[in-house]
Amino acid sequence: MKKVLLGVLTMASIVFSSCSDDENTSVSQENLNLSISGLEDLGPDYVYEGWIMVDGSPVTTGTFTVDASGNLSQTSFPVYADQLALATAFVLSIEPAVDPDPAPAATKLLAGNFSGNSATVSSSNLVGDYNDASGKYILATPTDMDDTNEASGVWFLDNSGASPVAGLSLPTLPDGWKYEGWVVLNGTPVSTGTFTSVSAADDNAATSPYKGDTNNGPAYPGEDYVMGSAAGISFPLDLRGNATVVISVEPYPDNSAAPFTLKPLAGSVPMNAEVHTVQDLSAGPVLAISGSVLR
């Protein structure tokens, strides 16, 4: 991941103290202008909030929402001129709509340093750089004893060697984010579960409503769709030629049951895929969100 200046890098690991408006002696204000595409509607419970770094501390620039078409509810924000002149970086976070905490949440999405009067901001600076991400998976249903439905499960592991190894190569996420696997059936995504480690079981390994009753499966992210139903389809089913496998990056706490905008890996399940045999994922549709900030 490319490095950014200290003021941005330390935002994920230090405790913040927000600057109060009462501390400002100047009433002169200037506008901070955002030009960001690719943001999604967070629903009624969450908003985006901008921050400028001033003397190592975050100062809010205000909150906004995004509609279903990706349009920001507000793109120009009045900020105290003296603080804006001293700002070294801009950060965008995801916050509860009703937020008792004046400091930024852990879920920080975009960041960038000011160079003169502008800053180029990107999710790659905070969430992860996915240009080198890669993924493999197998079709299998290890949570039941039925060997006739092996094409109804997806496990993110590589079993081509002497012993299975992690099938995903992804950056370690900062606080406030998790990965989530999906199979897309008839245009509807169905989760395989959330995870933070590519070499451990995902969060719903023991509680999934779709898995079999023999065990929880291997110690890697994945899912058996061997019982129940979702997306109007009853399980088990043959995923070959009928599903797309996706890895997304999700805010935590999560704002939606659907995949978030960032989707670094994806791939259609081949019609001729053999069960228990490694299949490759390709670069996903959205590796990063970026934009610019002007003061």
Results as ranks from 00 to 15, higher is better:
K2T: 13
V8Q: 03
V8A: 04
L9C: 01
S13E: 11
I14K: 11
S18A: 13
D21V: 11
N24V: 00
S26M: 09
S28V: 15
S28A: 14
L32Y: 09
N33H: 15
L34H: 06
S35I: 00
I36A: 10
S37C: 08
G38E: 08
L39R: 05
E40S: 15
D45V: 09
W51L: 07
M53Q: 12
V54Q: 13
G56T: 06
G56N: 09
T60K: 01
G62C: 04
V66P: 07
V66N: 05
S69H: 11
F77C: 05
F77H: 07
V79P: 06
D82G: 02
D82N: 15
L84P: 00
L84G: 03
L86W: 08
L86M: 14
L86D: 15
A87K: 02
T88Y: 03
A89G: 09
A89T: 00
E95W: 00
E95A: 05
P102K: 01
P102G: 02
A103H: 00
A105F: 00
K108Q: 13
K108A: 00
L109P: 00
L110Y: 02
A111W: 08
F114T: 07
G116L: 08
S118R: 12
S118L: 10
T120K: 12
S123C: 04
S123V: 01
D129E: 01
Y130V: 05
D132V: 14
D132F: 13
L139K: 10
A140P: 01
T143K: 06
M145C: 05
N149E: 06
E150T: 12
S152I: 06
S152Y: 05
W155S: 10
W155V: 02
A162M: 12
A162T: 14
A162E: 14
L170N: 11
P171W: 04
P174L: 09
D175W: 01
V183I: 12
V183Q: 04
V183S: 06
G187W: 08
T188V: 14
V190E: 13
V190K: 06
S191N: 03
T192A: 09
G193N: 07
T194Q: 15
F195K: 10
T196R: 12
S197M: 09
V198M: 01
A201V: 06
D202T: 01
D203S: 14
N204D: 14
A205C: 02
A205N: 12
A219P: 12
G222I: 01
E223G: 08
D224K: 02
A230K: 03
G232C: 08
P236T: 02
R240A: 11
A243D: 06
A243M: 12
T244D: 12
I247R: 02
A258I: 08
A258Y: 13
T261Q: 14
L262M: 13
K263A: 10
P264M: 11
L265W: 11
N272H: 10
E274V: 14
V275E: 05
T277Q: 13
Q279E: 07
L281S: 03
S282Y: 11
A283M: 11
P285H: 04
V286C: 09
L287H: 09
S292F: 07
R295H: 04
